[in-house]
Nucleic acid binder design. Structure first.
Lengths: 149, 149
DNA sequence: ACAAAAAGCATGCACGTACAACTAAAGTGG
DNA sequence: CCACTTTAGTTGTACGTGCATGCTTTTTGT
């Protein structure tokens, strides 16, 4: 008789999602801390540089960045503002679309990114290892995430 | 010859982690939107109510909440402040430890939580279904997350 | 028993993000 | 062509969170 007792438990999905949230918070926290401390980069800044590095001609439009980062457009305006101030990127106007603005990676930006990437990758896999070892519940998710390459 | 070409790709872990970030952002975004719109609850507030509902005597200490929510302790002070103002919880002092403070769920809080939970659970599984259907890469993670119950 | 260290919580402050409103430049239909 | 709608991006504002700090109470070590 699976009915409602005094304190109903959350659905199974919800319960597992909570686990993923903990995992997410833990890993992102470590990544953010180490990137900030060792390279002076925020998480979104690091990732923005990464997307720019991958992109053709090392440039992307605001909307592109917003989509890939999963951020609001206005957030990206300010994010790119910070990157420009740090001279990791510069702003380039679109010739064919006068509304548009490209954000272009500078050499300094690329260099900083590649320095940081080693740290990032190492920290990430270490954090995943650690979580997988600490809790079999996490291990399942971690394993799946890793095999989803 | 797998050496470094002009634009090196991020590690496999990093690449897959990006996927999980997209998944996370997407799901959390939907949950946050629907909870705010239909129940006037933020995501952390909802989850705090949930943990309180599960807890013995429907009360938890600040640190407990912080741990379970994956939030900073000072964030929880303010979070609980909001809950108290809304009268979903009230503050109760610890008899045996004069430093401690319990946050106790009120009937109104429990009611609001249980109303919201239906919405939350439905939205969550819908969002997971949608993502799994849209992209097999996500599907792998979603399936694992779900089986990790 | 007492000084020193640690734990629990609150407060000041700064930062990153979201939302809404706005400007400007394209696209679209009559 | 000209109004209308849509798209790209920026700015004002508010909110939630983290970090550093401070205060009180408990624990620890000698």
């Amino acid at each position: 008789m699976p009915s409602q007792v005094k304190t109903a438990k959350p659905s199974s999905d919800a319960h597992t999602w909570n686990r993923l949230l903990i995992l997410h918070a833990h890993v992102e926290g470590k990544l953010a801390a180490v990137l900030q401390r060792r390279h002076g980069l925020g998480l979104s800044e690091y990732r923005a540089l990464g997307f720019l590095d991958e992109a053709e001609r090392s440039e992307l439009r605001m909307t592109e960045l917003a989509d890939r980062l999963g951020l609001n457009q206005s957030s990206v305006t300010r994010l790119v503002g910070r990157l420009n101030t740090a001279e990791f990127t510069y702003r380039d106007l679109c010739p064919d679309d006068k509304r548009g603005a490209y954000t272009v990676l500078t050499d300094a930006g690329r260099t900083r990114y590649r320095e940081a990437r080693a740290t990032y990758d190492a920290t990430l896999s270490a954090a995943l290892d650690e979580l997988a070892a600490a809790d079999p519940g996490h291990a399942t998710i971690v394993a799946a995430a890793r095999s989803a390459a």
